[in-house]
C-alpha cells in the first residue's frame, strides 16, 4: 500500500478520542478513492509492510491488518495440518482415540480447515500479493499413536497437542483483537475465537474432566482468559513450524 496510516499509539488508552485524527482519516478515504474498490477500504487500516527488516528474522507476516490476517492464517494452517493428521488416524483401543472423540475431531478438523481456507480467500481478495506462503508443519514432537502422553514420554500425545494448540489460538486471537483496525475483521476474529474457545474447552474436558476453564487457563480472580502478543504466540508455535516466522510488525 502506498498510503501511510500511522498506528494510533497513545490513543489506545484514551477512549473518548476518535480512532484516527481527521487528517489520517482523510487519507484513508483518499486511498479508497484511488483504487475504487470495496476491498481497498478493508486494507486502509494497514500501514506499509516493513520488509526492510534484517534478513534473518524470518518470513515477515506483514504489518497492519494484513499482518494480523497472515498471523491468523499461519495459526490456522498449523491447526488445520494437525487435525488433518488426527483425522487420518485409525481409532484403536488403548492409546488411540475413542470413536466419539474421533468423530468430533473430524468436525474440528473441518472447522480449522475452513478457517485456514477462509483466511486464504480473504487475504487474496483484500490484499492481493501479500499472503503468507504455505507453511510446513513440524510435528516430530507429537506422537500420534498416543491419546495422552505418559509421564515417561517426551513427546506430546494427540490430546496434549490439541489442548496446547487450542489454548494458544484463544490467547492469540484475544491478544490480536486490539491490533485490528478494520471493524469487519474484528467481527470475523471474534466469530472465530469463540469457536476456538469451544474447541479448547472440549479438548480440555477430554484431557482432565472439569478443566474446561480451570484456574490454570482462566484467572481465578479476574475471570479472564489469556491474551498473548503475536511475538509470544509465534515463539510458542515456532517449534511446530519448519519456516521461521517474524511477527514483530503484526498490527503495526
Amino acid at each position: 500500500m502506498s498510503d501511510k496510516i500511522q498506528p494510533r499509539g497513545s490513543d489506545d488508552t484514551t477512549f473518548a478520542q476518535p480512532l484516527y485524527t481527521p487528517i489520517k482519516r482523510r487519507s484513508f478515504f483518499m486511498y479508497a478513492g484511488a483504487t475504487a474498490g470495496a476491498t481497498a477500504l478493508v486494507l486502509a487500516g494497514c500501514s506499509d509492510d516493513n520488509e526492510d527488516v534484517a534478513p534473518n528474522n524470518g518470513i515477515p507476516l506483514g504489518a497492519g491488518d494484513v499482518g494480523v490476517l497472515n498471523y491468523a492464517y499461519a495459526l490456522e494452517q498449523l491447526e488445520a495440518a494437525f487435525y488433518a493428521q488426527v483425522k487420518a488416524l485409525t481409532p484403536v483401543g488403548g492409546t488411540g482415540l475413542a470413536q466419539i472423540e474421533k468423530d468430533y475431531f473430524n468436525e474440528v478438523a473441518a472447522h480449522e480447515a475452513i478457517h485456514r481456507d477462509f483466511f486464504k480467500a480473504a487475504i487474496n481478495r483484500d490484499a492481493p500479493g501479500k499472503i503468507l506462503q504455505n507453511l510446513t508443519p513440524n510435528f516430530t514432537n507429537i506422537d500420534f499413536t498416543k491419546r495422552l502422553k505418559s509421564a515417561s514420554d517426551t513427546r506430546l500425545g494427540v490430546l496434549d497437542a490439541a489442548k496446547a494448540f487450542e489454548d494458544l489460538g484463544v490467547a492469540a486471537y484475544n491478544g490480536a483483537g486490539k491490533l485490528i483496525k478494520t471493524p469487519a475483521y474484528l467481527v470475523i476474529a471474534g466469530q472465530i475465537v469463540s469457536v476456538e474457545a469451544r474447541h479448547a474447552a472440549y479438548v480440555r474436558e477430554l484431557v482432565t474432566p472439569g478443566s474446561f476453564a480451570s484456574d490454570d487457563i482462566v484467572d481465578r480472580v479476574s475471570g479472564l482468559d489469556k491474551a498473548m502478543t503475536p511475538v509470544d504466540v509465534i515463539a510458542a508455535a515456532q517449534g511446530f513450524i519448519m519456516e521461521k516466522l517474524d511477527a514483530s510488525t503484526v498490527g503495526k
Binding site: 475465537v193 476456538e196 474457545a197 469451544r198 482468559d225
Partner: peptide
C-alpha cells in the same frame, strides 16, 4: 475478548 472466550468455554462445557 478475554471475557468473551471464557463464555465460549462455559457454553462448550
Amino acid at each position: 475478548l478475554q471475557i468473551h472466550s471464557v463464555e465460549g468455554r462455559h457454553a462448550a462445557k
